[in-house]
Amino acid sequence: MTTLEAHNITFAYPGGNPILTTWSHTFTAGQTTAITGPSGRGKSTALYILGLLLTPTTGHVTLNGQTLSNRPDHTRSWHRAHHFGFVFQNAELDPTRTLADNILESCHYRNENPATRHNHALHLMERYGVALPPHRRPGQISGGQAQRVALCRALIGDPLVVLADEPTGNLDAQSTTAVINGLKEHAATGRIVIISTHSPDVVAQCDTHIDL
């Protein structure tokens, strides 16, 4: 069973005061966890540390008992590509690439041929209500549609852990439901899903809750 653990994490940006101080938590497979707290308290920072995008000042992150946060960049990049999926607040799609290519982007980091997952990308688009031609580009779709595409991109590699940073902050009710349901469905397959959010409605749909 997959476990992701934060062990006594402290983090401060250069020249700043600590944002997180001796923070620890164990995340369990099959659950969605909401991380809440006031702006500036460290919700996004916690996600980026858990996802190996930031290195803690002290403490460490383990995945399935293996300490990863202090490993070299290329090792952390390998684990991000193979074990983690990310959904960012503003989708962060590449405007120069098609929707399908955006979804399949992580295949390149895993040295997979994107063509082998193309049909799966189309299936995800249909499943999460992206009723759009896959050759369209991000500038031709709405914000809600873009966030659903970002969800498909996060799930295409069936990651052990999905980290979602305010994934519904700018969405209408229909798109919010689609994104949260997609994250919960992924967790139900035995994966870990962690959501940074200000929304009480999103918190209410999660299995566990951390208030920073």
Rank of each mutant, 00 (worst) to 15 (best):
V202M: 04
T96A: 08
S142Q: 00
G65M: 07
C152M: 13
T28K: 13
R191L: 11
P18K: 09
I35S: 15
L171S: 11
L68Y: 03
G40P: 10
L212V: 03
A81F: 02
I210Y: 10
R153Y: 12
V61M: 02
T197E: 02
Q145R: 01
L160E: 14
G37R: 15
T177E: 06
L124F: 04
Q145W: 06
G129N: 01
F88S: 11
P72W: 15
G169V: 05
V149Q: 06
D158C: 06
E92R: 14
D172I: 14
N181T: 13
I103V: 09
Y13F: 08
N170C: 06
Q140A: 15
R97D: 15
H118T: 03
I141C: 07
S44A: 05
K43W: 04
H186L: 07
L99Y: 02
L93R: 01
S196F: 00
A115V: 00
Y48F: 11
V161T: 03
T22I: 11
R97L: 15
Q174W: 05
M125D: 09
V87F: 01
A91F: 12
V179K: 08
F84V: 07
R148W: 06
R41H: 06
H74T: 12
L155N: 13
W23N: 05
F84D: 00
S77Y: 03
G143W: 14
H198R: 00
I180E: 02
P38S: 14
T26E: 14
I194Y: 07
A146C: 03
D172Y: 08
S106E: 00
I103L: 02
Q205R: 14
R76N: 10
D207G: 13
L68F: 04
W78D: 11
N17R: 14
